[in-house]
């Protein structure tokens, strides 16, 4: 038997079903926790979120403006909190350079700059010509020495230019620590594998700025995509300002540029 004309009773039933379903779905939508994930935070690097990520067609750069760094150590604190870096190890740190009139350079970095710089140096006898802060982090070399020496393929350059560490593959031999000219690596005493600054790769892939760039109050740290012609980093790199890289003679071709760095900075 075929029902051609549904009785009013059937209509009512389907209507009630729909109403019930809608109510339950609506309640669930309101009650279900939305989660403290990246989607609550507005996108900071345009063109990454809600798009297929072409890993071969990406280029990022980091610019540190030394003339704007005040040595507050926000970046160090943020970095330590973001990755729970154990005490005594630093993924990023801020060094203080003091230049005397005899051209002698005094560098210090108490606790990696985590506590900030509360007092001037008192142990320098000569007259001081210049003082400045130099934030340091992984240089993300295009020709990374750490990648070349890794015997197990745990350190690698991803196709989008980030030098990363595979913590499941790393055996903790520390060859890369010796190979890194910038001392950006350390062995995590808890996990016994090598750790380093990743330019917050997990944040960048979610369209967010690295934690240190995010908290920098003076804009001394800048990060962005070179594929985006409106990004601040693209404009700086395209512009006429002098940019330097650390230890150029090592041939590592860093993607980390320093603006306003004196030639004494190494």
């Amino acid at each position: 038997m075929k029902i051609k004309d549904p009785s009013p009773d059937m209509k009512k039933r389907s209507f009630l079903k729909n109403v019930l379903n809608g109510t339950v779905a609506g309640c669930l939508y309101l009650v279900y926790p939305m989660g403290a994930d990246s989607f609550e935070i507005p996108e900071q690097i345009p063109g990454i979120r809600n798009k297929p990520y072409d890993i071969y067609d990406q280029e990022f750069a980091f610019v540190v403006d030394i003339t704007r760094c005040i040595g507050c150590g926000s970046c160090c604190v943020a970095d330590k909190r973001e990755f729970n870096v154990p005490d005594g190890n630093y993924r990023t740190w801020v060094e203080r350079y003091v230049k005397g009139f005899s051209d002698r350079i005094y560098v210090d970095c108490p606790n990696g700059g985590l506590d900030g710089y509360q007092s001037p140096r008192t142990d320098i006898k000569e007259k001081i010509r210049d003082t400045f802060f130099v934030p340091k982090l992984c240089n993300m070399c295009r020709e990374a020495p750490c990648v070349q020496v890794c015997p197990v393929g745990a350190t690698f350059t991803s196709p989008d230019g980030f030098v990363l560490v595979d913590d499941k593959r790393c055996v903790g031999c520390a060859y890369c620590i010796q190979a890194c000219p910038y001392s950006a690596r350390f062995i995590n005493p808890e996990t016994r594998v090598v750790e380093k600054c990743t330019w917050c790769y997990n944040r960048v892939r979610k369209g967010l700025l690295p934690a240190c760039v995010q908290v920098c109050p003076t804009g001394a740290r800048k990060f962005g995509s070179l594929k985006d012609e409106n990004s601040e980093v693209y404009k700086i790199l395209k512009g006429p300002g002098v940019l330097t890289v650390l230890k150029k003679e090592m041939g590592t071709w860093p993607a980390l540029y320093y603006k306003g760095a004196r030639r004494e900075v190494v």
């Binding site: 900071q44 745990a154 690698f156 913590d167 499941k168 917050c200 997990n202 934690a211 995010q214 908290v215």
Partner: peptide, 28 residues
Amino acid sequence: SFGVYGPFRADAIDEIVEIPIRHGTNDS
């Protein structure tokens, strides 16, 4: 996944991406 992008485990990239973020922005 070894050798998808080069002489390393390609899944490691996804594992690093999955690390939860801890800092929001001021707007959050």
